[in-house]
Amino acid sequence: MKSIIMTIVREFKLIFRDGITIYLTISPAVLALIFIFIFSSVQESDIALAVDKSLPQDLVAKLESVADIEFVDNLESLKERVSGADSIAGVTMQDGTVSLLVEGNEAQGFAESRQNLVSAALGTESIQYTTETVEGQNSLAYTISMACIFLLALFIGGSSLGLSGVNERESGVIHAVSVSPMTLGSYAVSKIILSLLFGIIGVSACALIMGRVDALPQFLLLALCSVFVSGMIIFLIIGFAGNQIAAVGVLKIVMPLFLVVGISSVFISEKWLFLYYAFPMYWQYAAIDTVISSREPTFQFLMILVTGFAWFIPVMIVFTKKVKMKAWR
């Protein structure tokens, strides 16, 4: 027990030596903040139209009530603007007829929808109504983005310890550990406990940034139930990377694997979904989705533990073979 605590303290000191790891642990929360800002920007954005000076002022005023208007001087400038990288339609008047300019490569239905809008806006008198905002369920894009952030927070916890282990492997410390009285179990526990701590800090920061303090206990449980997943990440990195450069290569494979597998289940037909049941990454995503939509995630938590453990054992076998560390002595 004493050796485990000493190892944890040593790891803690090494990882926090440069101070930047503290920031990295909460960096997913910074990303969450950026994502939330983008989603609210997209939600609140207006339709944009470009108009030139040929359009009478009263018609421009009607269009201004339904869209953001960009003004240009003449037809040439209007064509140039419409040909820009973004999708924007131009409105001009030629021989007394209103024309809509589009580039021609926009999404299907873009020209027709803008034609309908301009036609309706120019031909309709003011309509009286009141508005009321109804806070709805989160969109799929929002749920996926937030799930990605939580998975990243958990991943950073595991991979930080994985990279520290690669450093030990490169410098020969791991060999010294393998011939010391410290067992494989103690070594694994010392790594996993610290990664759980990072994971807990990361998901807590994300939950706070998302304004989901009410779901904080469930997110903490998520981090705790991901104990074997963190273990898999740590020992896959140490097992397959003999040096720091190779570790970046391994991370380039492991990172998308642990972030994307669960999320990809959203795009899979239900009849094939059973194939995902064996992966803890799928249950992690399912648990996050359940917590975000304020449902009961106990089953998903249990499945993370069960499937995580089932994968953790072969990962540890591969690890012991790769670093020549004995499981029992």
Binding site: V66, S99, L100, E103, G104, A111, E112, V118, A121, T124
Partner: peptide, 21 residues
């Protein structure tokens, strides 16, 4: 307002669509 305008339009104005390319 754009959605309501399209739903409750009182009349249609003919608009030509010109594709630049």
């Amino acid at each position: 307002h754009a959605i309501i305008t399209m739903l409750y339009r009182s009349s249609n104005i003919d608009i030509n669509i010109e594709r630049l390319n």
